[in-house]
């Protein structure tokens, strides 16, 4: 489960302020979405592996392994986007009956798929190196989120394994009732059937948790202390500045080799074409 893959460690990324890390990694994650070529997301994907290795002490293989289930999705996106590509075309690569594949189509498909992997990679670096409690703490301290909202992050984190356990239990319980069929339609039908007990128990649990929080004085006093406070350090700021520099340099480099195609430029080009 990618959302709960936090593993303890003592790397730079582990020790970093979570809110600052969230901001910086979001920059890495967002920039490639502004360009239409496949080279930019590929470069940023490679950057993410380097970042994980050097600053997070996460082996790139581990990271790729974790993303493995999504490669299928990525491949699907690639194929689908190249087949139904409607932009400017030059070189025909493949012609099979009604199926035509152009070079630009393949490039477009790759750029979408790689972007998807890029998002995935940075997110999992973040989740892997971020203690949820410290994330909540820094959202409260550095982002100045009201603490009542900051704590919902944590309760959600506690709920995920409980819900997973409950879901597998419900699945077993229904299997025993019979009429368990494979296939996409049977699956869709089950969502609703599982949903009712899952929701009713989930709401009950959430209610109990809320009562328990109030019973221990959550939100009562004006002042609150923190067992694990977070602060912003110079190294956090330096990391942000360094990251911006790396991003800018990468973009300049890509442009030098003529690989960069701006998002706005792409839109303009396709408008001219039609």
């Amino acid at each position: 489960m990618i959302f709960r893959s936090y593993t303890e460690g003592n790397s730079f990324l582990h020790r970093m302020n979570p809110a600052m890390k969230l901001l910086t990694l979001s920059l890495f994650l967002m920039v490639p979405t502004l360009f239409l070529d496949p080279a930019t997301p590929l470069a940023f994907l490679l950057l993410s592996l380097l970042l994980a290795l050097i600053l997070g002490r996460i082996s790139p293989f581990k990271l790729l392994h974790q993303m493995a289930p999504f490669f299928v999705v990525m491949l699907g996106i690639c194929v689908f986007s190249s087949l139904f590509y409607g932009g400017p075309k030059s070189e025909l690569l493949l012609h099979l009956g009604p199926v035509t594949v152009y070079r630009e189509g393949v490039a477009f498909g790759l750029s979408i798929g790689l972007r998807f992997l890029c998002v995935l990679s940075y997110s999992s670096i973040f989740v892997r190196t971020t203690d949820p409690t410290l994330l909540a703490s820094s959202l409260i301290h550095q982002v100045h989120l009201p603490y009542r909202i900051g704590y919902t992050v944590l309760t959600a984190y506690r709920f995920i394994p409980i819900l997973q356990w409950e879901l597998s239990n419900i699945r077993d319980a229904h299997k025993i009732r019979g009429g368990y069929r494979e296939g996409i339609w049977a699956r869709l039908g089950r969502i609703r059937r599982y949903g009712i007990p899952l929701l009713s128990n989930g709401i009950r649990r959430a209610e109990r948790m809320a009562i328990s929080m109030d019973a221990r004085g959550f939100g009562t006093a004006l002042k609150r202390t923190y067992y694990r406070p977070t602060s912003l350090r110079t190294s956090d700021v330096l990391f942000l500045i360094g990251s911006v520099l790396v991003i800018v340099c990468t973009l300049i480099g890509l442009n030098r080799f003529g690989l960069l195609r701006g998002f706005l430029a792409g839109v303009a080009e396709s408008l001219v074409e039609h």
Partner: peptide, 18 residues
């Protein structure tokens, strides 16, 4: 469902923080 925090020590700390 009456436990709120991810870690044992944080759970005990929760009331103290409040």
């Amino acid at each position: 469902s009456q436990l709120i925090m991810p870690r044992v020590d944080e759970e005990v700390a929760f009331g103290l923080e409040n």
